[in-house]
Design a protein around this nucleic acid. Sequence first.
DNA 1: ACTTCTTAAGCTGTATACAGCTATACTGAT
DNA 2: ATCAGTATAGCTGTATACAGCTTAAGAAGT
Lengths: 227, 227
Amino acid sequence: MNANSLTIEDAPHTVQSIHDTILERICLLDFHPGQQLKEADLATEFGVSRTPVRDALSRITHLNLIETRNGVGTVVKELPDQKIADVYTTRLELAPLIGTLSTTKITQVHLDKIQDLILRAKNLDDEKSSRSYVLINHELHQLLCDLISNSVLRSFWRQTYYQAASVWYRIADIAGEASILSLVNELTELQTALKNQDLIAVGHIQRIYIGYGYARIQQYLFDSKTK
Amino acid sequence: MNANSLTIEDAPHTVQSIHDTILERICLLDFHPGQQLKEADLATEFGVSRTPVRDALSRITHLNLIETRNGVGTVVKELPDQKIADVYTTRLELAPLIGTLSTTKITQVHLDKIQDLILRAKNLDDEKSSRSYVLINHELHQLLCDLISNSVLRSFWRQTYYQAASVWYRIADIAGEASILSLVNELTELQTALKNQDLIAVGHIQRIYIGYGYARIQQYLFDSKTK
DNA sequence: ACTTCTTAAGCTGTATACAGCTATACTGAT
DNA sequence: ATCAGTATAGCTGTATACAGCTTAAGAAGT
């Protein structure tokens, strides 16, 4: 359940593993926007000095997800509406490229994985399971990255995912049932496309459902500010 | 001529300025692929300790332009052909988005700049002026970035530029006249588009000339390996 | 001459001490 | 009671010492 804290003394934490852990926590909202991240605290948690932690944080800064100010601290950024719009607009354009730029062969492993995700998504409860909702999306993202053969596109797809994730998952908590239904439909359509070895379709499905997700964000987030 | 080394004691170097300087040197081939970058040397040159230099290098690592191995050193990466192909393929797709996702108003400053670049490009000599060729392209890139209003797209456009630049400029040394002629034509077409406030056209022009550049790379770089 | 082991040089990775910046709480005068 | 000024706590930024890894040169045995 909490693999990270259990491995403190098992495996020595590298800069990369610390980077990944912090990034994942930001995505999964364990570190929420506005929260202060203290280098010293993270260092003691991971059992290292501040040096590797600083290194990891420094890289995350490039994703525009945290901001470090001298003398003050490091805080998780609250993305302004315009930045969120930029991320989603770009993501909408990147999605179809997954199909046109990829030549990956879909294997049984992929099919098994999507089947697993569908089953878990169907068991989601409106209340209490927001964590599971997030995890399913997270694993779906990794599955899709595995299908993208162009390394640069994969990198960009990941970057926009990291930037979009925390906003998107916050909305899911509010939207509840609508988000869950949408996810089940998305997974089912993806399964069909994968069975047909149709990566072009995968790209377009992504494009469609990112559009739905963005619509929910505009509805629940942006609208609530203008009232 | 050598502004960087002159400012050693003028302004205190920040991590950001060190990062930018090293990155620019890699792009402009002052640091060529395969070259070893020693943290200690860079530190003494910039008049700081290894700590900020390490920070800067660590961020550049994420652009896949350098590689640091423990006990060995930091070397400028020689991108394999497949990676170059990935960069250019993605860049071809991003180019049209410059037009469709931007709403920037073109000002007289932009027009003056492109006029300046055209004059300088027309004065390029086949021999001896490869440095000027690189600088004109570099400034053109900054001009285009200034036109991209979507912050995420701008970031991605920059990233692909950094990754493509060193390969592209190495080819220009070989191709010589062909590259220069192509640049003059590109700048002239861009000037027309800018005068018409037509960012869509700007995007398509970029798309076209990136294609030409990639064709030259395939001709001079990839072909020479298969003989 | 050749192979193998040892050793040393040179680099990056990490820990730690300290300098510098910022926000806040507190003090004192008005 | 209010406000200006000051002291202080707590954070990040930097310098430095040292540990650990890698490579290559050289010595010793065959």
